[in-house]
């Protein structure tokens, strides 16, 4: 079936039925961004479920295997193969960023945790870029990673930030380990773990200490038209943006401000601010490179079979305490873990 993409130029006027803050804040940027979403869905609805992973052989060696596809602005996955392992740069910046940053993420997990790819069994890394029209998202669909171009008004292309690519790949890692339920507190932990390791990938790539890192997620992602420094701040949740169109970053950084909501799977991208800040507090209290100790404690927790898939913050926190003690004894690292969780109102 041929995909039909409506011409968005004809949707000139904001409809009268839009509720809430859109009425107050609906400027050109938001309207443009809303309209671009329109053109997405036709082709995907008709797309068959392709077993993407079946297309790619697993590496028998402990080597990275990357496959970068171009969806050519449709929603067909995986799209057209553009670049694979050891092939030259394509000249398409989204393709080459996906290739480089998936590589950086793979290297991080290999170098620091001796993990062999997403599933620790050499799963090939499959990424599709140019997904949809002006698509403002990136995701992991249990088989591959997918990146939109952004609308150019609010968001740049989603391959532009190393930590976003690390975030998506980490969703695959979490799925193959604790597989935390994507709802309420376990869902917010799932999100936080992706932010934590996404940020660590970036810090490792730039060889930054916990003090040198800015702990912003997606700092290249917002265009210069937006009054913001990124999607989220792990150090100070709730301060990443404050914009006439987007509103203010709503992330809480303490249990006192935990958001009870039915939206966003129970606020998984909102309440993740709480465990994000706990990690930041632990990492900066320990000092040095965050991946060396704080990251190791978090990774041991994520890969511990004792971590239930419906873990709440407290359950997760207690396991980080257990692993801090097992790895480093009852020293300053252990105290940092206790203080970090206390700092966000999670009692161990």
């Amino acid at each position: 079936m041929k995909a039909v993409f409506p011409d968005t130029r004809h949707y000139g006027v904001m409809p009268p039925h839009i509720l809430e803050r859109l009425i107050e804040h609906g400027g050109d940027r938001l309207r443009h961004s809303a309209l671009t979403t329109q053109s997405l869905d036709q082709s995907l609805r008709t797309s068959k479920a392709i077993e993407v992973t079946a297309l790619h052989r697993r590496s028998q060696l402990n080597e990275i295997q990357r496959f970068i596809y171009d969806a050519k602005n449709t929603m067909e996955l995986p799209g057209v193969l553009i670049r694979q392992e050891n092939s030259a740069a394509s000249g398409d910046i989204a393709v080459d960023e996906a290739y480089e940053y998936l590589g950086a993420t793979w290297n991080f997990f290999k170098d620091i945790f001796e993990r062999n790819s997403i599933d620790n069994q050499g799963l090939p890394l499959v990424g599709t870029v140019h997904y949809g029209h002006d698509y403002e998202n990136a995701f992991w669909n249990s088989q591959q990673m997918v990146f939109g171009d952004g609308d150019g008004e609010i968001f740049n292309r989603f391959t532009i930030s190393l930590d976003i690519i690390g975030h998506e790949l980490t969703h695959g890692v979490t799925e193959s380990e604790a597989n935390l339920v994507y709802y309420n507190q376990p869902g917010a932990l799932n999100e936080s773990i992706s932010d934590v390791f996404g940020s660590l990938v970036k810090q490792y790539h730039h060889q930054q200490t916990a003090e040198q890192a800015n702990w912003i997620i997606g700092e290249e992602l917002l265009t210069e038209r937006v009054n913001g420094i990124g999607l989220r701040s792990m150090a100070e949740p709730g301060t990443a943006y404050d914009d006439p169109v987007l509103g203010k970053d709503p992330q809480p950084g303490h249990m006192d401000n935990y958001i009870e909501t039915r939206e966003d799977n129970g606020g998984v991208h909102l309440n993740s601010g709480i465990p994000n800040r706990a990690f930041y507090l632990v990492a900066t209290a320990i000092g040095g490179y965050a991946w060396e100790k704080a990251g190791r404690i978090w990774y041991a927790t994520l890969t511990d079979r004792q971590l239930p898939n419906d873990a709440d913050f407290q359950t997760f926190a207690r396991l980080t305490q257990t692993h801090a003690e097992r790895l480093y004894g009852r020293g300053s690292e252990y105290e940092a873990v206790l203080a970090g969780w206390r700092g966000v109102g999670v009692a161990i």
């Binding site: 039925h17 839009i18 998202n137 968001f155 975030h167 999607l231 966003d264 799977n265």
Partner: peptide, 19 residues
Amino acid sequence: LSREGGVAYMPTLARPRAI
């Protein structure tokens, strides 16, 4: 009706609509 989720989830971008 609203559109939710995504790595860049922001409540404003869910564009909630009531009929």
